[in-house]
């Protein structure tokens, strides 16, 4: 039984007729009561819908769900704080003498590392908080729910990317204006693409791992530990070097930031994304479709 200690609500007009404290031995409850006479809810006007929930509406609601909890809000705040700190360090060290690319990587790194947790939570909270009982009762087509979660997570990713980009530019300009550095705005198209992919692929991977495990701690630990372990093994064991070139996303994405990719490097990037992002997403959604919601 859950009887919270803090209940302070006064009787509302709707509950004033409730038989509170009808018995002398029962102390008056601080909690509101049901109306004595049941009031029937009014009928909603119009016909009952014959068409399903539009995907745009589903996505909007999923977006709101990712941001209306403390976990969601704090993740956003945490990203903001880390970006702020990273930019401040670049601004104040070495006389602020850093290129725009340096500022950009300072904002992208924390964004790309923390943001996937939002993708993970978007799926796992349906099980850990058991809200799936309501979510999947209101939209039983679970693939659509999963896709709405993916799209809304990517929308957050795009917004974060644009904001991080703008902040990097702002602080770089500030360093030019106030610290008198020469400024270096040169930035390769591939670097921007790389930064964008870094953020968005991470989010997709987060949603995928969330769907695979449907358990917050498991998904978060595996999401962070598995690629790292794989990266270390690939670096240590010589015969893993070749597979690791194709299957370690940290390695396959590296050339993007160098600004030049060979055909083979594109193929390596594509392969690693297929294995780490697309495959988990497909398997995760297949599992999510069949999983029992309890």
């Amino acid at each position: 039984m859950t009887t919270p200690a803090t209940q302070t609500s006064p009787n509302s007009p709707t509950s004033s007729g409730a038989p509170a404290a009808a018995h002398p031995n029962v102390s008056a409850k601080a909690e509101s009561a049901l109306p004595t006479v049941a009031k029937m809810p009014s009928r909603l006007p119009g016909e009952r819908p014959t068409t399903g929930i539009p995907f745009s509406r589903l996505t909007r609601v999923e977006l709101r769900k990712q941001l209306d909890t403390r976990a969601g809000r704090w993740l956003i705040i945490a990203i903001g704080l880390v970006i702020g700190a990273a930019l401040a360090i670049n601004f104040f060290t070495d006389g602020g003498e850093h290129s725009f690319e340096d500022y950009l990587s300072a904002t992208m790194l924390p964004t790309a590392i923390i943001l996937p947790v939002i993708g993970i939570l978007a799926v796992t909270s349906e099980w850990s908080q058991r809200t799936g009982l309501v979510t999947f009762a209101l939209e039983p087509r679970r693939t659509r729910v999963a896709m709405a979660k993916l799209v809304s997570a990517l929308l957050i990713g795009v917004a974060a990317f644009v904001l991080a980009f703008a902040l990097a530019a702002l602080v770089h300009q500030a360093a030019i204006t106030f610290r008198g550095i020469d400024g270096d705005w040169s930035v390769g198209g591939l670097v921007v693409l790389g930064a964008g992919l870094y953020v968005l692929l991470g989010l997709m991977q987060g949603v995928a791992f969330g769907a695979l495990f449907r358990n917050t701690p498991a998904a978060i630990v595996v999401y962070f530990v598995l690629p790292t372990v794989w990266g270390i093994l690939g670096g240590l064991i010589s015969w893993l070097d070749t597979p690791s070139k194709w299957l370690d996303m940290n390695r396959t994405m590296q050339p993007l930031f160098g600004g030049d990719l060979t055909g083979e490097q594109w193929a390596q990037l594509g392969t690693s994304v297929a294995v780490w992002v697309v495959l988990p997403l497909v398997v995760g959604i297949a599992l999510l479709r069949r999983a029992e919601v309890k």
Partner: peptide
């Protein structure tokens, strides 16, 4: 279609 407009479901109030 849009099942919430046809069926009211309450399976666990704590969920």
């Amino acid at each position: 279609p849009n099942p919430g407009r046809h069926v009211g479901v309450l399976l666990d109030a704590s969920a």
